[in-house]
């Protein structure tokens, strides 16, 4: 099972195995990682699950779809490596992925 590393707003890093087919958001919810809200439960509707993808992983994670980009462009504290974590599906290639949560 891929291991995802979450850096919480207080700087503390935690690592969890997240099942294939799940999402980076769901992995955070399952393990009660602090820093994301995920109000809509993964419907790409609220932008409350924003994470910053470690720059080294940006290419592997891939780009956001148009709808997600539109959501992000209007969200707060957006950076060039922002993604909505509900839209990052866990694949074998993501083993070791590092994301940090907005403060």
């Amino acid at each position: 099972m891929p291991v995802i590393k979450y850096i919480q707003p207080n700087g503390q890093a935690v690592e969890f195995e997240v099942p294939l087919g799940s999402s980076v958001m769901q992995g955070a919810m399952d393990n009660m990682v602090e820093g994301i809200v995920a109000e809509c439960g993964g419907a790409c509707s609220c932008a409350t699950c924003q994470v910053y993808v470690d720059p080294a992983w940006m290419e592997i994670v891939g780009p956001a779809c148009d709808f997600e980009q539109d959501m992000l462009s209007a969200a707060s504290d957006v950076r060039s490596n922002s993604r909505l974590s509900c839209q990052i599906e866990i694949t074998p290639e993501l083993h070791g992925l590092i994301v940090s949560m907005p403060g």
Partner: peptide, 9 residues
């Protein structure tokens, strides 16, 4: 309706 930016703003 299919207007995520307008929703956020």
């Amino acid at each position: 309706v299919n207007r995520p930016q307008e929703f956020m703003f």
